[in-house]
């Protein structure tokens, strides 16, 4: 039992170090937060693997969901091959391990969940909302809602994205008094969504990932074919349920090793008493 706890602790620390490194790499311009300036260098040509608002003064990379809508909003392009190809490539290699290891907003959510409070599980139907948001707010509306010049608007960023409000909106508005005068109804909607998201994350682990994240929805679909995956030797499983109990995403890895919700954190592999679960590229990775 003690060995299992040690292994779980080591696994968590290892993952947190990778998450912190990814957070730092994606937000390498921390000094800009005090001034509210935006980094304008060439690295913004590239997208970050996870959700991270490019209007955050610390951001050194572009947000893939924001970038996808920015290209869709440009009349001569339509759908973005560049961003779609980038997400598809990462997704087919890592699946939702990107969410578990490289998403800055994922780390923020996990830290929020450590705040003491009653903890709840989400009913399964809530997890389908993110697919609806992906189709409607990321693909359809930015392409269909155009102004008289044929220019669309990034509807997911504009009406929903709580990561944008938290990482971009708050630091920018605190440092730009002239922008605060323009606050209106849309900001109220976004602030309400942010408040619901933050409260949700405290009560339910990775509430945004489970319910709202369009990027997680794409990576989740690619979980079924990704190189990095969960392997289960079902015939040796004793159905103790330990893997399901420890899963932060409420997945039963024995029943659904390719679940669109699994973030490949590997906790199930560590707690399995029979070592029948492996997470890795080949299936030979150690459960420690």
């Amino acid at each position: 039992m003690k060995i299992k706890e040690d292994n779980l602790f080591r696994k968590n620390i290892r993952r947190k170090i990778i998450q912190l490194a990814a957070f730092g790499f994606t937000n390498s311009h921390v000094g800009n937060i005090a001034t509210g300036r935006i980094y304008k260098g060439d690295w913004k040509n590239f997208c970050s693997p996870g959700i991270n608002c490019y209007s955050c003064p610390a951001a050194g990379l572009s947000c893939p969901i924001g970038a996808m809508q920015a290209v869709e909003n440009t009349p001569r392009f339509g759908i973005s091959f560049y961003v779609l190809g980038f997400i598809l490539a990462l997704g087919v290699i890592f699946g939702r391990a990107i969410c578990g290891y490289a998403c800055p907003f994922g780390l923020i959510q996990e830290l929020l969940h450590k705040i003491p409070s009653p903890k709840k599980h989400l009913p399964k139907p809530f997890t389908y909302i993110k697919f609806l948001l992906l189709i409607v707010f990321v693909f359809l509306l930015p392409a269909l809602l155009n102004d008289s010049y044929g220019i669309g608007s990034p509807t997911f960023c504009k009406y929903i994205c709580p990561a944008g409000t938290l990482e971009g909106g708050l630091p920018i508005l605190l440092t730009h008094p002239e922008l605060r005068k323009k606050l209106g109804g849309i900001f109220s909607i976004k602030a309400a969504i942010l408040l619901i998201t933050l409260t949700g994350c405290i009560i339910c682990c990775r509430f945004f990932c489970k319910v709202m994240c369009p990027l997680g929805a794409i990576y989740g679909l690619l979980n079924k074919i990704s190189f990095y995956r969960v392997h289960v030797e079902k015939e040796k499983c004793v159905s103790c349920g330990a893997c399901h109990d420890i899963c932060p995403m409420d997945v039963n890895p024995v029943r659904q090793p390719e679940s669109a919700e699994c973030i490949r954190c590997g906790k199930c592999a560590v707690v399995c008493p029979k070592h029948v679960i492996c997470v890795g590229f080949t299936g030979n990775s150690s459960p420690s």
Binding site: I38, N45, Y54, A59, S62, A70, G164, I186, F187
Partner: peptide, 18 residues
């Protein structure tokens, strides 16, 4: 180009100003 242009300026939609 549109990715860079969007990312190096304050995105008013992202921060909630529409």
């Amino acid at each position: 180009m549109p990715v860079l242009m969007k990312a190096i300026n304050i995105c008013l939609e992202c921060i909630g100003l529409g």
